[in-house]
Design a protein around this nucleic acid. Structure first.
Lengths: 132, 132
DNA sequence: CTAGTTGCAAAGAGTTTGCATGGCG
DNA sequence: CGCCATGCAAACTCTTTGCAACTAG
């Protein structure tokens, strides 16, 4: 639904695509782009547009009120579950086999149809597990 | 850490235990107990205590800023993943076998250790699927 | 009694909105 | 040139906090 490609919108898109699959808050984005000249309201408005277009997802953690935005254009994103590391904050894609298996299991045993676009599994990734 | 069992705390506990595994916002709780005389700040303070004690979990949906509280004293809650229906809002416990299987799969293929207490799977439950 | 709790109102934090100005096409 | 989008500040919503009054043990 955006009609014009403004300087601000371009700046935002470039930034987001360079940070794909990272969880970013509106403030973080504004701060990162403070040199480029974009107001916090333009950030919010553009993020909303992008969300409606499905180019971005909103996520949050653990019942906190903090909202993060995450650029996810890749094909993977629609067919796999997302894993989010509680230590480093990075996002991973669950492997296809496990995703499919879980879907089948849930449908079969729990009569539950999982919504892959809004589900995120939280835990600790391999790298952080070792580091600890 | 609470020391006194005040009228307000008792009211809240009774209400929560009668609505176990429902997602309730602070406002909803306040509204439901408006006849009993409990202020919104007492609601918040007591919910925080209960959360620290682990008798309650905070959850939210789909990257929204809305926070819900959920009383969950049962044993199930610690060893199984939670399923949340996007239609009716009810919470279910995933069956043990699938929970275990998923845990193993994730550890094996994705080197990811899932955090069962903060993960919620979203989707549509059997009942709502039929109703539709 | 007396420390923990409450209620109220004020302060915060994050997000949205109204409106005049500016800039994309 | 005509809308759409921006920036600013004010409005909103949910939650937290300070403080005097109250109350459970």
């Amino acid at each position: 639904m955006p009609k014009y490609m403004t300087k601000q919108r371009k700046t935002l898109l470039v930034y987001l695509s360079q940070h794909a699959d990272e969880k970013l808050s509106a403030r973080q984005i504004e701060a990162a782009l403070s040199g480029e000249g974009i107001s916090i309201s333009a950030v919010y408005r553009n993020l909303s547009e992008l969300e409606k277009e499905g180019r971005i997802r909103r996520v949050n953690q653990n019942g906190s009120r903090e909202v993060f935005y995450q650029y996810s254009d890749s094909e993977h994103c629609k067919e796999r579950l997302h894993l989010s590391c509680e230590k480093c904050g990075k996002t991973f894609h669950m492997n296809m086999d496990s995703t499919r298996l879980l879907e089948r299991d849930l449908a079969l045993h729990d009569e539950f149809v999982i919504d892959k676009t809004s589900t995120v599994l939280y835990g600790v990734c391999g790298e952080c597990r070792v580091k600890k």
